[in-house]
């Protein structure tokens, strides 16, 4: 085959390689869904109580792009999350890490529920419990021992 015949073939091959190459490159970039799957678990450190996936500000868009880049570099979700914590603090997390005073957040609600349940249980038990049967003999003996009753009885007897 002549050299001139190879030229168009190599051109076509070259073009095919270029286009498939760019297509592969596009495949490597994570999709918006993949980015948002992680972004929804990270909160915007500037606009409070807004997850990154729905945050409309420019800075949040920058952070979403950062997540995309980190995913493209092969970072795991835990690594990305840790990066954001290291950079911006615990406030980016949906729930505070269980350490220090943060433990109160995890301990107090169940403790309050348990205490409430205990109080409720004890109150209900008091309502249901039948009054103890009073032994008339015991009452009488007690009455006899009562100085005031004895005095009253003697006063009445005198009349």
């Amino acid at each position: 085959m002549k050299y001139t015949n190879w030229l168009p073939i190599s051109l076509v091959l070259g073009l095919v390689l270029v286009f498939t190459g760019s297509a592969f490159a596009q495949d490597i970039l994570p999709s918006d869904d993949e980015v948002n799957a992680i972004a929804k678990g990270i909160y915007c450190p500037v606009c409070e109580n807004t997850p990154l996936d729905v945050c409309p500000t420019q800075v949040c868009a920058q952070w979403r792009e950062l997540i995309r880049e980190q995913l493209a570099m092969g970072w795991s979700e835990a690594q990305i999350r840790q990066y954001f914590v290291d950079q911006y603090g615990d406030r980016v997390l949906a729930s505070p890490p269980a350490r220090g005073l943060n433990w109160l957040v995890y301990i107090l609600p169940p403790l309050a529920i348990l205490s409430g349940a205990l109080i409720l249980f004890r109150t209900l038990r008091t309502w249901k419990k039948p009054l103890p049967a009073v032994d008339p003999g015991v009452v009488e003996t007690n009455l006899e021992k009562d100085e005031y009753v004895a005095r009253l009885e003697s006063e009445l007897r005198r009349r």
Partner: peptide, 10 residues
């Protein structure tokens, strides 16, 4: 430099 973990701003 960056304010890591927002410690300085806090």
């Amino acid at each position: 430099g960056p304010d890591l973990r927002t410690q300085i701003s806090q």
